[in-house]
Structures are given as structure tokens and as C-alpha cells.
Design a protein around this nucleic acid. Sequence first.
RNA 1: GGCGGGUUGCCCGAGCGGCCAAUGGGAACGGACUGUAAAUCCGUCGGUUUAUACCUUCGAAGGUUCGAAUCCUUCACCCGCCA
Length: 423
Amino acid sequence: MSTHANVLDDLEWRGLVAHSTDRDALYEHLGQGSVRYYVGFDPTAPSLHMGNLVQILTARRLQEAGHTPYLLVGGATGLIGDPRDSGERTLNTLDTVKEWVDRLRAQLEPFLSFEGDNAATMVNNYDWTASLSTIDFLRDIGKHFPVNRMLARDTVKRRLESGISYTEFSYVLLQSMDYLNLYRDHGITLQFGGSDQWGNLTSGAELVRRADGGHAHAFATPLITKADGTKYGKSEGGALWLDPEMLSPYAFYQFWLNVEDAKVGELLRVFTFLSRDEIESLEAQSAEKPFLRLGQKALAAHVTALVHGEEETRRIEDASAALFGGGDLSALPGTTLAAALREAGAVTSPAAGERAGIVDLFVLAGLAKSKGEARRTIGEGGAYLNNERVTDPELVPGPGDVVGGSWLVLRRGKKNLAGVELV
RNA sequence: GGCGGGUUGCCCGAGCGGCCAAUGGGAACGGACUGUAAAUCCGUCGGUUUAUACCUUCGAAGGUUCGAAUCCUUCACCCGCCA
């Protein structure tokens, strides 16, 4: 079950260790047998997203190396809110948080194995905090947290100007208490999280040491950013959700396919289980012939398969190839075209009687938010019908414009496609 | 509890009675160039049957005025100083 090579070597090669507590001690610890580790996810939204995926996959890497995962869903911490720079959070209701906890649990499960010697375990910090008395909390936990040190933490320091409630200020105590509890009850000796969690991670490790004299380790994964250092996550006007209801698998795939050349290698390391050899070979090929986009294609295929499954990924790949193949759309078999458009996004419109004009069709298909925007796009030369630029906003497509039997292929700009089926 | 400052479009941030759908920056979107890449340049960026028009927006609700994002009142939230 264990470990030819130390898993930390692999994590470091993948660039997944941005910070860690005593690195040599951690290395040795991971080399000595199955380590019980945990990573937490706070229910701040109904779905996990790309940032969480880094943690999920890291958890899986550790499990595959023989270590034992505990996945914590923050039913309690989600009610409090981790302080962030953008300001005080709005508290969510207990019902909302409970619902999100359930959704996150369901989303996490497929990524880890819940069987075998090092089966994964789900825990919820609501279970050990809900009944905790204020007096016990202040005496047993609070006593270990010097306020001067808490004030010195980066996020808190930045929030001191704009304001921070006692609620959020206390967040770190709750998360640290999680570590202490899991250390005591489950023998957990490693926590990891995103690098924005680094302060919380070390606070937890320190609490274990102060309270119990235990030796607890921690490491942080890096923040994944675009090549220019800004955040990812604006593809369809928001975060890169893992929930297919919130972001279609097609859009998810397209996001990865469109990643900048400069980031492909890094993302392959972080988000796929391809081997070092495979990744280095892809990088070499990409450097030589970047226009083939082999790295992006591999990245998109692997990540989409991890999140949405192999079968769905095949369908999306076929759809993308058909729609972006550059060929004549009318040359495609009708069934291929129909399948591709259904992946990309398809709506229906009446074929006879009151036929919709091109402007309305763009709105209907979701390619423009308003008729004004659709008109503007046409004016800018960014609107296409069946790969032909549309110049007349009054155009009313008719039977003569149909491809693949009953379809109109609308496109906005280079990569926003949708199908309209005339019925 | 007192006094002062604030709440503007996706975000930041000007505006402080008419010329304001509201300067500027960022994000986003479109075009050119490409490889469904980056960088660069150009353009767009509340809505409507594109209009020297109308409608809806400047924390909320009322009010003053021919006319308010701009003035007044009340409310909510935030910040600072003093108790």
C-alpha cells in the first residue's frame, strides 16, 4: 500500500506545496506509514469550484499514496465566515448552510475511495461545535490565542481599516479547534488547504501543540492564477463551478481548452493525474507546435473526465471538433451537428408562422443579454449565422438558411456558439 | 449615547440642483492579427421597434422644486473620533 517514492516528492514536483510546516519533518512523517490528514470545505455556495478542485485532487493524490483522508465540510465554520479582503460577509441561514453542506458532500464523494484500509471519512465540524458551551470555548480554546498575534495576521490587519466583526475575527479559533478535535478523536496529524488558508492551517497546528503537546503538520497549495497574476473564473460570468447545473460541462471543457499556453504545464501538473513523463512530453510538444494545442486538449479532456465523467467528455470533444473544425457546417451529417449543438447549448424556435428575426434569435439562444446587445454585436461584425457574418439586423432566417435538417447555427465572436432548432 | 464621514452601474471610483444614463480605471464583450493562446491596436459596454425620443437606475421610503444621484426628513447598514 505504500509508497515507493514519498508522495511529497510528487506534490512538490507538481507545484502543490506553496508553504509547509517543517518540511523535513513532514517528509519523514509521510514516509512512515499511512498518515491521517484532513482538508476542509466551507459551504459558502451551493457548489464547489475550480479552486476547491485543487484540494480535492490533492486529497486524492495523498490517498492513492496510501494515506487516509478525512474530508471536512464546514457546517459550523460556514455559519461564521472566514474573513476575506472584500469585506464582511452576509450570514447565511442555518437552513441554507445545511443544504449546501449536503450538496458539497455529494459533490466530494466521487473523488475519493470510501473503501479499503485507508478509506475516506466525511466529517462535519457542526457536530462538535453546535453543543459546545461558550464558557468551555473561551476557557479551553480561547486561552491559547493571544489577541496581539491574531491582530497581526494579514487578512485581519487589512480588515482592521474597513472593519471586521467579532464573528469573523473568531473564525480562526473554530478552524483551529477542528484540527485539535480531529487530532484527538481520529489521530489526524496533517491538514492542508489553499494558500489563503495558511494562517488558519498554522494556527490549528499550533493549537494542537499548545493544548496537547502534539506534533501536527500542515501545508498549503498555491493559488491558481492566470499568467498575468489575476484570478481565474470569469468564463461565463462567474466561478468555474463543478456543478453541471451551474456551469455546463461543455463550458467547463471550453474553459480548460482555452487556457493560455504559458499556464498549460502548470495546470496539467495540478489538475491531472498524468505522469511526469506524460506531462513533460506534452509540454515539449506544445512548445514545438503550440498551434496544435495538444496540452490544452489533454488538460480539458482529463479534467472534464474527472469532474463530469468519461462519457460526457467524449460527447463534448466530438461536439467541439465538429463545431470548431472550421469546415462547412452543411457538410456535417445532421445527427453529428444536432448532437454537437445540444452540447453547446440549443433552443427551439418556430419554423413557420411568426418566425423570429436574427436579433431575437441571438437573445433567445443566450448569446446576447438584450436586443440592444444583439444589434450592437451585429454592428460590430461579431454575429454569425452558419459561419457567415450577419450584417443586416432585420434578417429573418428562413428554410433556406437551415443546416443539418432543421438547425440554425448562431455564433457570437469566435467561440460563443449556440444552435436554434426550427420546429 | 454624542459628533463627524459614507452607501453610485459587474468591481473600484468621480459627480454634489438642469448640459447626467451619469468622468475615469479595471473586468467583460466585439473587430483586426493569430492557433478556440498571449501581447498589441481599435471599438462597445442600462433597456426599448436606433430614437436631437421614451423608460428604469445613483442604500430604502417620503418630501421640496418647473427640474434631484445632487437639497430636506425618516429608516437601514458601514466607517471614524469621543463617552
